[in-house]
């Protein structure tokens, strides 16, 4: 158990986006969050590394524990939390800097100054993200020159470089073509040995292919959480069944 949410409610102003979400994420497993648009799955994901702090007028109730500590406790520091819980976004968002400097951004902020250590870290991260062979000769080039799929893998490498324990992925392949999507899925499969991965996806085949656990959300509520196979073959809730069989959503 690496992350636990306990009776989490979330509000955008007066709008209630999540209701009483209680959920355990297991260490070094891939957990998928699925559900129709606006069901709150992305909102929950962004709560896990306190990215929703950046939006004005939001409010969280309940507890979210990371390794037993409430990350919404008054003395919890969102910056430290985000260093340990990385995030990959829907649209690839590399900085308009060189490939090298994209990777070194977080480690440098975390105080790593040694050139050799940094170079080793860049190589290791890019290798783990299976991008090294494609970019090793153009590390000083702008990240903006890469293709969309490469940019997304760079963003994954960038997140890996700060040595997180958890990686949150918010529909990471929705802006990519099928070939790039397959590469990212393969990558997720290799990463799960070392990292806990939580992925939001609107693509149910993808959830079925890559995840071990799946949570189904509807109208801000967690309807069902179980082993992926069970969710996709024999769900308990009628709503889940309707959704995965394509009756709505």
């Amino acid at each position: 158990m690496i992350i636990q949410t306990k009776n989490v409610d979330f509000f955008y102003g007066a709008f209630r986006a999540l209701t009483d979400v209680t959920l355990d994420f297991k260490k070094n497993r891939v957990t998928a969050l699925i559900g129709p648009s606006g069901c709150g799955k992305s909102t929950l994901l962004r709560l896990l590394n306190r990215m929703n702090d950046l939006i004005d007028g939001t409010r969280v109730e309940g507890e979210i524990l990371f390794e037993g500590q409430n990350i919404y406790a008054p003395n919890a520091d969102p910056v430290e939390i985000r260093q340990r819980i990385g995030m990959v976004f829907q649209k690839p968002n590399p900085f308009p800097k060189s490939i090298f400097n994209n990777i070194t951004y977080a480690p440098k902020l975390a105080g790593i100054r040694d050139r050799g250590e940094i170079e080793a870290l860049v190589e290791e991260s890019l290798k783990r993200a299976v991008l090294w062979d494609e970019v090793k000769d153009i590390l000083t080039k702008s990240a903006m020159t890469l293709s969309g799929g490469q940019q997304q893998r760079l963003c994954i490498a960038r997140a890996l470089a700060m040595k997180p324990d958890v990686i949150l992925m918010d529909e990471p392949t929705s802006a990519l073509d099928p070939i790039s999507t397959a590469k990212i899925e393969e990558l997720i499969d290799t990463l799960k040995k070392h990292y806990t991965i939580i992925i939001v996806t609107h693509n149910m085949q993808q959830a079925a292919r890559i995840s071990e656990y799946t949570g189904f959300f509807y109208m801000g509520k967690l309807i069902e959480f179980n082993v992926t196979e069970k969710i996709f073959t024999n769900p308990d809730a009628k709503q889940t069944e309707d959704y995965i069989t394509g009756r709505f959503g």
Binding site: N93, P96, A110, C155
Partner: peptide
């Protein structure tokens, strides 16, 4: 400056000052 850059920076554990100084202003 696209919001995505700033989000990426925060998600990598940067403080607000670091995000402004190293991402927003350069961009």
């Amino acid at each position: 400056v696209p919001r995505e850059y700033k989000e990426a920076s925060y998600a990598l554990g940067a403080t607000k000052y670091e995000t402004i100084a190293k991402v927003a202003i350069p961009a």
